[in-house]
Design a binder for these strands. Sequence first.
DNA 1: CGTTCAATTGATCAGCGTCAAACTAGGTGG
DNA 2: CCACCTAGTTTGACGCTGATCAATTGAACG
Lengths: 232, 232
Amino acid sequence: MRSSDLPEIRQLALFRDMSDESFADLVRGGYVQTFPPQVELIREGDASDFLHVIIDGVVELIAGWNERQTVMAMVRPISTFILAATIKDAPYLMSARTVEKSRIVMLPSEDVRAVFDRDHAFARAVVTELAVCYRSVVKNSKGLKLRTSVERLANYLLRQGLHEEDRRRFALIVEKRRLASYLGMTPENLSRAIKTLEPYGVTIDGADVFVRDLSNLERFAKPTPLIDDPSC
Amino acid sequence: MRSSDLPEIRQLALFRDMSDESFADLVRGGYVQTFPPQVELIREGDASDFLHVIIDGVVELIAGWNERQTVMAMVRPISTFILAATIKDAPYLMSARTVEKSRIVMLPSEDVRAVFDRDHAFARAVVTELAVCYRSVVKNSKGLKLRTSVERLANYLLRQGLHEEDRRRFALIVEKRRLASYLGMTPENLSRAIKTLEPYGVTIDGADVFVRDLSNLERFAKPTPLIDDPSC
DNA sequence: CGTTCAATTGATCAGCGTCAAACTAGGTGG
DNA sequence: CCACCTAGTTTGACGCTGATCAATTGAACG
């Protein structure tokens, strides 16, 4: 690993509080690598050799079964993925593929487990990260079971808006067909869902989103922190 | 807490490896209580005051939104629930209700966090438990997105069979309408799904399940450890 | 024996997927 | 610079899955 990458990694919440010695042990066998788009980083079912941390770009987590595929999550900086598999030393439950050019830190799972056992501050950070991941999957699952696809889209737009300068005018950050899969529908259906939201003041032209009347959309979407607040 | 309950709790994976002192700190402010069926133990959105451990009975985790409700999970001994909320000191994402008469250990969340910070063996156990929970939600989510309701039912039956003496002849452990909600369908639809599986050798009379031809059902259900193996 | 609630059944309907075709935009090479 | 190619998106037609509504049957319990 190039030493110029270290400071950036060191300040991530996951690594911030650990001892210098533990950090050194952790990154000794690690890499930072930049991948082009559409590269499969890990494959569902494989052994979890590395803990991955994305520090730039976008990665999608994909699950497959019986010829079917679905996007389970979109991971963006700065966060880990497949932490649970690393901890449990169990096979990956999802594949990971870069969507855009992405910079990824890879730390040998074995080292992560070893340092976890020695460094309490790191252990604390791992647990917090895991708890956040767990809750995010639960929220996702609630959305899937309790909402229709149009409701999921409406809440997705409201949620993404929160991360933009202008909540009423921004660009989609992923292709529509990936978004469709993530939201649990087909691309065709996403097109129609977008039309369905037009009476609520939503227009999407290409990747450009316009929300004419936020409160109108909110009345329809009924967002709740217990599903839609990522930090809750 | 009655001291007669302690040995039983002490031997749970979560508490087995911690120091005597930490264990004492943990249970000092805790209770063991037996609840009748249909009692709401915790409510979605409330602050997480206690970590719950079920040592007898059945508890269902329920999520609601906009007048709709769904069973997110059925928890049976011996496991914790809502560990993530306790760790993060965040609101519960799900409600919990006893299905049958259940014996529950309740440990103050504050104490759990305090002991977690001091006792490394406990921290290790918490992380393992969290990782298991995380992976189980991911598997669930995969089933929801990748399988039809009949496929989910078929795999559910195969999975439950593994915990019975006779994989081909056992009883459902929950009411059908709860099972329906858990599997993401209506009770009416579950009835029909059961009929759909008849050609594959499945009969369900009341709560009694008969699987005439296991391999036939498996050919249809296509179970995979990456969705259906709870210990994977 | 009657009350109550779950389970089933049938009829109907909405949501969503599938298939096919048209359209669009971005990139490539002549 | 333009024609062309490719891949994503949109649209329409159609059908399946599963939800809803209503009515009936069945089982548990006082």
